[in-house]
């Protein structure tokens, strides 16, 4: 864990952190990784990966429409919108 990695992770998660905190976060993450990395010592080559701790499987919904139009409510709640669309700072490709 170094400063650059912390900066990258924060960017990917869209988190703004101030410089004083960066050092603390770096130390904390370092400690967490160290703790977790103990798990790496266990031989798991014969263990099936656990995808979910619940020993259940997903319920599948039938392909039948059940939804009401809440366009106005959704748009009202958005930071910026017009009568039809959510408006966001312009993104171009």
């Amino acid at each position: 864990m170094d400063k650059k990695t912390v900066t990258t992770i924060c960017y990917l998660a869209r988190l703004k952190i101030d410089k004083e905190k960066a050092q603390k976060i770096e130390n904390d993450l370092e400690a967490i990784i160290e703790l977790i990395s103990k798990l790496q010592n266990i031989d798991t080559s014969n263990v099936e990966p656990l995808y979910n701790p619940l020993e259940k499987t997903a319920l599948k919904h039938n392909d039948v429409i059940d939804s009401d139009n809440r366009k106005e409510k959704f748009l009202d709640n958005a930071p910026s919108s017009n009568e039809d669309y959510f408006l966001v700072p312009r993104v171009m490709e």
């Binding site: 017009n82 039809d84 669309y85 959510f86 408006l87 993104v91 171009m92």
Partner: peptide
């Protein structure tokens, strides 16, 4: 991207 000035509409 091109209908609203300064905004992208979603």
């Amino acid at each position: 991207h091109d209908e609203f000035d300064g905004y992208s509409a979603i």
